[in-house]
Nucleic acid binder design. Structure first.
Lengths: 225, 225
DNA sequence: CTTCGATGATGAGGATTTTCATGGTTTTAG
DNA sequence: CTAAAACCATGAAAATCCTCATCATCGAAG
C-alpha cells in the first residue's frame, strides 16, 4: 500500500512517515502543492494525506485538480483548523475523510484503514507496472492476460519492486522488508542473489515487459524494457 | 518484547495498546495501582509505561515498591501534568524517561526503543521459562547450560510461546504472528501442526522442563511440567 | 589499457518448510 | 453409551529456501 503525504510542517511530516512506515506502508512525501501535484501525475497512490494549509496554495485546489485527473485512491484531509466550512467543502470535493490537528496517530491509522476498506468495495486493488499486475491481498500475479505462479518469497520480492518501479532498491532494504526483524546487519547477501536470479528467470519465462536491473554497488532497480 | 501499560484512562490505554501491538510488542494493561502491582510481581516486563495519576494511589509509590522488588526492565513515566517536580522525583526514583501528555505516539515509540537500548548495554536480555532461555536478538536458545540448535520457524514458534507462558495461544494468532500479512483467514492449519510436532520433538530431545500442551478447540499452551 | 579488489551471478546440494494422506482423539448429539 | 463430526497428530513426499563454491563483471588505481 502506497501513501503520499502532502504536508509542509517537516517535523510533523517526519512523524507521520515513520509511523506509517512502521505500519509497512510505502510512504512518499511532498512538502508543498507543486511537488504534490507532480508526484500525483507521475504515480498512483492508494491513499493521500493532504494538509489544507500549504505554503504555495490551498490544498482544496489540489483536490479539484485531482478530481479532473480522475485519479483513484483514497484521500484524507488533515487540517489545523477544525472549521466546519473546510470540512464540508473538502468532503464535497471528494475527500474520503477529514481529520483536525492535533489527533492521535492511532486515530489516523484506523481512519486510513477504514477509508481504504470502503474504497476497495467492488473493485480490487492492484499494483501494475509494464504488463505485470499484482494483487497484494490474494497473492495473484498476471502477465498480460495470463495468470502466473510463483513462490512466496518470489512474490515478496516482486511486490516490493513493483511498489517502487524505477527506483534503486538496496539489498539491506530488501532484506529488512522481506525477512523483517530476523535480520541484524548480515554481511551475506547470497540468498538475495539467489532470489533475484529466480525472479529474473520467471520474468523472462513469462515474457514480462519488465526486468530487474542491477545497479553496481547500490542494489537493484525494476525497469520497463 | 513485553510491555505493561498502567493507565486508568481506558480509551487512551486502548490507543497505546493497539499502537504497541502493531509494533509487534506483547502488551498487557493494568487500569490501576493494585492491578499493576499484582502483574508486576507475577511477570517480568521489558518496559513499563506508568501513568502517575492513578485512581487508587500515586504512581510514584509504585515506583518505590518496584525498586524494592529489584525488578529489571525499563520504566517510562506518563503524566498529564508537566511539572518539573514530578519529573525530577520520578527520574530520581529510577524511571528511565518521562513523557508529558499529550505526546505523539511516534515520540513514545522512539523513547521506548532508546530506553530499552540503553538498558540493554552490558546485559543481554533473555526470555526464560522453565529451564529454557531464549535470546530474541541473536536467536540463540539454551536448555539448562547447553546451547541448542533449531530452525528459524521453530525459533519463531518457541519465542512466541515463551513470551506467553501458560496462556492459550490460538492457531490464528500463531499464523498471524509468524507469517504476518501473508495470511488471510486460511482454513488450513497443517503447517502449524507440522511445526508444533517438530518443536515438541525438539523439546523432549533437549529434556526441556516445558512442553506445548494442546487445548482442544482453542489452540496450544506452553506449560511447565 | 591493464590489473586487482570488490561486487554480483549461477548451478548444485543440503536444509527447511509446507502439503498430503491417513489415522487417532476429543466433544457433542442422539 | 455410541456414533458422527470436528479436531489434532504424524510420517513421508514435494516444494521452497538458503548456503556454498566457483566464475563473471564492474570500477578504480596505476
Amino acid at each position: 500500500m502506497k501513501i503520499l503525504i502532502i504536508e509542509d510542517d517537516l517535523s510533523f511530516q517526519e512523524i507521520l512517515r515513520s509511523t506509517l512506515e512502521q505500519e509497512r506502508y510505502v510512504v512518499e512525501v511532498a512538502p508543498d502543492y507543486r511537488t504534490g501535484l507532480i508526484k500525483l501525475s507521475d504515480y498512483t497512490y492508494d491513499c493521500i494525506l493532504l494538509d489544507i494549509n500549504l505554503p504555495d496554495g490551498n490544498g482544496l485546489n489540489l483536490l479539484r485538480e485531482l478530481k479532473e485527473m480522475k485519479k483513484t485512491g483514497s484521500l484524507i484531509i488533515i487540517s489545523a483548523r477544525d472549521s466546519i466550512e473546510d470540512k464540508v467543502e473538502g468532503l464535497d470535493l471528494g475527500a474520503d475523510d477529514y481529520l483536525a490537528k492535533p489527533f492521535h496517530l492511532a486515530e489516523l491509522l484506523s481512519r486510513i484503514k477504514s477509508v481504504m476498506r470502503r474504497n476497495n468495495q467492488g473493485g480490487e486493488q492492484y499494483v501494475s507496472y509494464g504488463n505485470v499486475k499484482v494483487n497484494p491481498h490474494t497473492f495473484e500475479v498476471w502477465v498480460g492476460e495470463a495468470k502466473v505462479e510463483l513462490s512466496r518469497k518470489e512474490f515478496d520480492f516482486l511486490l516490493y519492486f513493483m511498489q517502487r518501479p524505477n527506483r534503486i532498491v538496496s539489498k539491506s532494504m530488501l532484506a529488512e522488508s522481506i525477512w523483517g526483524d530476523h535480520f541484524d546487519d548480515v554481511d551475506n547477501y547470497d540468498f538475495i542473489y539467489a532470489q533475484i536470479k529466480n525472479l529474473r528467470k520467471r520474468l523472462t519465462a513469462w515474457n514480462a515487459s519488465i526486468e530487474i536491473a542491477s545497479v553496481y554497488g547500490m542494489g537493484y532497480k525494476l525497469i520497463e524494457n
